[in-house]
């Protein structure tokens, strides 16, 4: 129920870098995600801001299961 809006709000972050990247991701990719990827995205959104940003900028490779969505985040 209202998954999209919920996700959109959880893309509101303390780091402007993440606000921008996540907004781009929502606009470009969110609608195309399958169930598994939606789950990955939610897991990523639960991470602290700096950890998520590190993963997006490749400093941390993190959990292998999250790679598909992470790769999209790295692209936007």
């Amino acid at each position: 129920m209202k998954k999209l809006e919920r996700a959109r709000w959880r893309c509101r972050r303390g780091l402007l870098e993440l606000d921008i990247v996540l907004q781009r991701f929502m606009d470009e990719y969110y609608a195309k995600l399958d169930e598994a990827e939606l789950g990955q995205f939610e897991t990523l959104l639960d991470l602290p801001d700096n950890d998520l940003w590190d993963m997006i900028t490749l400093k941390e490779t993190g959990n292998g299961n999250l790679q598909p969505v992470l790769r999209l985040l790295q692209k936007v």
Binding site: W9, R12, R13, G14, L15, L16, P48, D49, N50
Partner: peptide, 12 residues
């Protein structure tokens, strides 16, 4: 808080 506490802007 509008967002989870540790996502407040102080984090930046």
């Amino acid at each position: 808080s509008k967002v989870f506490p540790t996502r407040s802007h102080t984090v930046a």
